[in-house]
Simulated assay, not measured.
Amino acid sequence: MAAYKLRSAARRTAIQVGSAAAMAGVLAGCAQSANPSASRSASAEVATTKAAPAAAPQSTLRMITNQGHKLAFHITPGNLPAIVLDAGGGEDSSYWKNIVPVLAKKTGSEIITYDREGMGASDPVPGPWKVQNAVSDLEAGLTALGATHDVILVSHSEAGEIATYITGQHPGQFAGAVLVDASVPQFSTDTEIARVAAATQAQVAAIQALKPASVTQADRQLLAVAADYVADQHAYHEATWPAAVPATVIVSSQTPFPTSPPDAQAWRTAQAQFADAAPNRHLLTAADSSHDIPLDHPDLVEAQIEAMAKDVG
């Protein structure tokens, strides 16, 4: 699932669409816990307060070319294995700007963030968005940066789809994952795919009616994702997460659908089904939280990443 934040002179709206599912007109964020041992228990309800960003080594920008387009990767130096942060739909690497310095200081690990095609400093790519192209871009970046084993992958929202495919194709490259209100295959049922496709038609039409100068990067990505959404989501529903890669699953209490109880329940059910599918997966709920857990209360996300690093280290 992705939270696409559409910005123009006339409006600031959020729309849920993307790799695992979407719904028009829903905006979200989330809450977190500073106690990793407590928050890693199954289905635990947690809440916490924000911490001030910690000092950390300065990140560097590296442009990496894949399939003819350039991608911006931001590297904060540290020890391997690397921690890779992947933002949701409509967002770029700046989504993690407050979390990166804290993680770097607490874990001592190398931290990698990046801009997917068409976002941030990365080149746009014309045509429909395809998850395999996004997987190829991330593969190319991690290979060029030497992050080829024991990587900890942190994926929010739409990035869960990328995480599912890349770990499935290269399970030996990843030591674990933290999925933050992320898209999981179990959500993309026939019912939810149809509801999402219908719900986003008006938002897609509204973007298409905008003057070119008013169309944002997030708008363009939404149109690209929506182009082949139905077929892509039917395929995603058949994907599986590799049993060898442990995962911490953080679900927001509001879900990405705070105004749609049926879709919110379907989201919670899918997250629980994913977590229950293997003994090395842990489910927790961020109390009083919206979809944007990393922004609202980063402490929980930081604590779970740090705990994962210790678990797999």
Rank of each mutant, 00 (worst) to 15 (best):
V196G: 12
P36W: 09
E45L: 15
T48N: 11
T255R: 14
A175T: 01
Q201I: 10
T167F: 03
A244E: 07
P124K: 05
P53V: 12
Q217E: 15
M308K: 09
P258R: 08
D296W: 04
T269S: 08
V215E: 05
N79F: 07
A24W: 06
I111W: 00
V245S: 00
A2L: 14
D115C: 10
S94T: 13
G88S: 00
L179W: 09
I99H: 07
R11H: 13
H156V: 02
A47I: 01
Y236R: 14
T143I: 04
A270W: 08
P53C: 04
M1L: 07
A3F: 07
A54W: 09
A194C: 02
A72K: 15
I166Q: 05
P246N: 06
W96R: 05
A2K: 10
A134N: 13
Q254Y: 10
Q201V: 11
S59K: 14
R268G: 01
V301E: 12
S188C: 00
T107I: 09
L27H: 02
V249S: 00
D228C: 06
K5G: 07
N66S: 13
G172Y: 05
V178H: 10
S37C: 09
V180N: 12
S19C: 12
K70F: 03
D137Q: 07
A202R: 14
D311Q: 12
P53N: 12
P57E: 00
R116I: 04
H234N: 01
Q217P: 15
D292C: 10
A275F: 03
S39F: 08
K211E: 11
Q186T: 05
S122E: 01
G118P: 11
F187V: 15
N133C: 04
F274A: 11
A56Q: 11
G118C: 13
V17W: 12
S252Y: 03
T189N: 01
S188W: 05
T49E: 12
A303V: 01
A309G: 03
G90L: 10
G141P: 13
R11G: 15
L61K: 04
I64H: 01
A134L: 15
I64M: 05
S214G: 01
P298E: 05
L145E: 06
P256T: 02
I152W: 08
P36Y: 04
S122F: 03
Q233K: 14
K310R: 12
I112K: 02
H149K: 11
Q254G: 08
D190E: 02
T248F: 06
T49H: 12
S94C: 10
P298C: 00
N133T: 14
E306C: 10
A197W: 07
N35E: 11
V245Y: 04
L138W: 02
P81A: 02
A34S: 12
T191A: 06
P258H: 04
K130R: 13
D137I: 04
A286C: 08
A31M: 07
P279I: 03
F187M: 13
R40W: 09
A235C: 01
P126Y: 07
M23K: 00
P298M: 00
Q271C: 14
H282M: 10
V215P: 02
T240S: 09
P77T: 05
E117Y: 03
Q265S: 11
E161L: 10
H237S: 09
K106D: 14
P81W: 03
D292N: 10
A44L: 03
A182L: 00
P185R: 06
V135I: 03
A235K: 06
A278G: 08
S59P: 15
E302I: 11
A47Y: 07
A44W: 09
